[in-house]
Amino acid sequence: MKQPPRYRLVVDVMVLMVRDDGRVLLLRRAGQVYASGLLCPPGGHLEEGEPATAGALREVAEEVGVTIARRDLEFCHAIHHRSPEGEGRMGLVFTAQRWTGQPSVREPEKCSGMVWADPARPPADCVPYTAAVLDRFRRGDLFSEDGWPAGGAA
Rank of each mutant, 00 (worst) to 15 (best):
L73T: 05
E74A: 05
E74N: 03
T95I: 04
H80R: 09
I68R: 10
G88N: 12
R82F: 11
G101D: 12
H81I: 02
V105K: 02
P84R: 15
A69W: 08
I68Q: 12
V64F: 04
Q97M: 06
E59S: 02
G101M: 11
F94A: 09
G113L: 03
E62G: 06
R106K: 15
R70C: 04
C76S: 11
A96P: 07
H81M: 00
C111D: 01
D72I: 06
P103V: 13
G91E: 03
R82Q: 13
H80V: 04
C111P: 01
K110Q: 12
M90W: 11
R98K: 08
A69L: 06
A96C: 08
G65W: 12
Q97E: 14
E109T: 01
H77I: 00
T67C: 07
S104M: 11
R70S: 11
S83Y: 13
V66H: 08
S112M: 01
R71N: 06
L73P: 04
G86Y: 14
E59V: 01
L73D: 06
A96D: 05
E87W: 14
S112L: 03
I79L: 01
T100K: 13
I68D: 04
G101R: 13
P84K: 14
R70G: 10
Q97A: 10
P108K: 05
G91D: 01
I68E: 04
C76N: 08
M114T: 13
G113F: 00
E63Y: 01
F75Q: 02
P103W: 14
V115N: 02
E85K: 15
I79H: 00
M114L: 15
E107I: 06
Q102A: 14
V60T: 14
S83V: 09
E62R: 15
